[in-house]
Design a protein around this nucleic acid. Structure first.
Lengths: 235, 235
DNA sequence: CGTACCTTTGATGTGAATCAAGAGTAGTGG
DNA sequence: CCACTACTCTTGATTCACATCAAAGGTACG
């Protein structure tokens, strides 16, 4: 049975596990939960379009969403791929602007929608919440800035390598020269767009890296054979 | 006499004019002011390097700073050009990370430094301040996202045109087809980097636009002859 | 088991970078 | 005030990384 048809979700428990709502009293959590709306989307369904007015932010319970710019000539630029426990749409809440991207479900997805006014109430009453919110936004800023760095001064191969390294489960272990297994979170075309590449280019880069024995590719399974050498690989 | 040598600056008055500190009681403002440090930089001086630990954020009183990524091979990527009344460095305060960019004075500059702990105190005591902070960060996120859109799916000429349109004094007036005068805020090489272009390419684009009678270029003075047609210009 | 989409591979094209000079322009000091 | 130095900006010739176009496998799913 598909998860999308399970109708009982413990919203409070889900929210409590998010960094944003940590350190929250059960009472507060209760008030939030009462105001949260569930939203189910089938694969390929649109949550909002670029230009729509935001009324709150979203948290993914299960599934995957992509945030992207539409573009004339059908192609689109994926800005972010968002998975379970992650949230999106916070920042536009705080400025009176329409969404600058659209959001589409990559797979069947269950979302929670937290209304804007709940957030503003919490902000007024709870300084910890404000700090968490600021930290969350700051994190997102940080990754965006990293992306800008990638797009601006790294080659396509370097961006792919950077992506693989970021997605190593065993993060930060510099001394380990062994092999690591990665499962790509979604299709190669979406990842290509996320990295500002065409699917063709991504395919060729994977091919080249595999030929150089740096990685192995089998569908969505990527094996990094030599973390050290991959990090140092140039061009 | 150069402004950098004027030694008396009314910090409170300056802060009061920033969106971030609007709606603040004189008492609060006083407490902040006491904790603010002035910092003077000569043209070309470095404020911080990529990798330095942040201890607060900065506000520009006069002058100009550039925020940029260093890069092997001398070239650098300018992420932002910041001018008077604008602030920078807020977001890294909220996450325990080093600066992802460096900051260098483009001209002689006077800055105010607001220490991290002052911000956290205010955050705890004043929900309005928290909202302003969130709004400020959100604005910055929004522009970064716009930049990503530009870099990803606009041609170099489109980015230049977008830049010119953004810098029209008479913003938002769609019906006016007349001419507008713009003064570039800094050197063309820095603007080129900001737009992810080489100086050569920017120069050629200006040349082409001028040849098409869409703009006039005289040093830093750009005259937009036909707003309408410039907006529609394609390639 | 066929249709629709994702992925790979090859051939070709092109936008912008790079390389290389020269032409302003601006600060500096005699 | 002019010469000297140091940039910044422009212009042209050439190169290159990546996109585009085209077509053939793979894979998944109704």
């Amino acid at each position: 049975m598909n998860q999308i048809h399970d109708n009982h979700v413990d919203i409070s428990a889900l929210l409590a596990r998010l960094p944003l709502f940590q350190e929250m009293t059960p009472d507060q959590l209760q008030r939030i939960t009462a105001q949260v709306r569930e939203k189910r989307l089938g694969k390929g369904e649109m949550l909002f379009q670029k230009g729509d007015p935001p009324r709150g932010f979203f948290v993914i319970v299960f599934g995957q969403m992509k945030l992207a710019f539409p573009s004339s000539s059908g192609n689109e630029k994926v800005v972010d791929i968002v998975g379970p426990k992650q949230s999106f749409g916070e920042s536009v809440m705080f400025i009176d602007r329409p969404y600058p991207v659209f959001a589409e479900a990559i797979t069947d997805t269950l979302l929670l929608h937290v209304a804007k006014d709940v957030v503003f109430e919490l902000l007024a009453s709870d300084a910890t919440f404000a700090r968490h919110m600021l930290a969350g936004l700051s994190m997102r800023m940080h990754s965006l800035v990293q992306d800008v760095e990638s797009y601006s001064l790294r080659s396509s191969a370097q961006r792919v390598i950077g992506y693989l390294l970021q997605h190593c489960p065993d993060a930060g272990n510099g001394s380990c020269g062994g092999s690591v297994e990665i499962t790509l979170p979604t299709s190669k075309q979406i990842i290509a767009s996320r990295l500002n590449l065409t699917p063709e280019t991504l395919s060729r880069i994977f091919h080249d890296l595999a030929e150089a024995k740096l990685i192995g590719v089998q569908g969505k399974q990527i094996t990094i054979n030599d973390l050290q050498r991959l990090r140092e690989y140039d061009l």
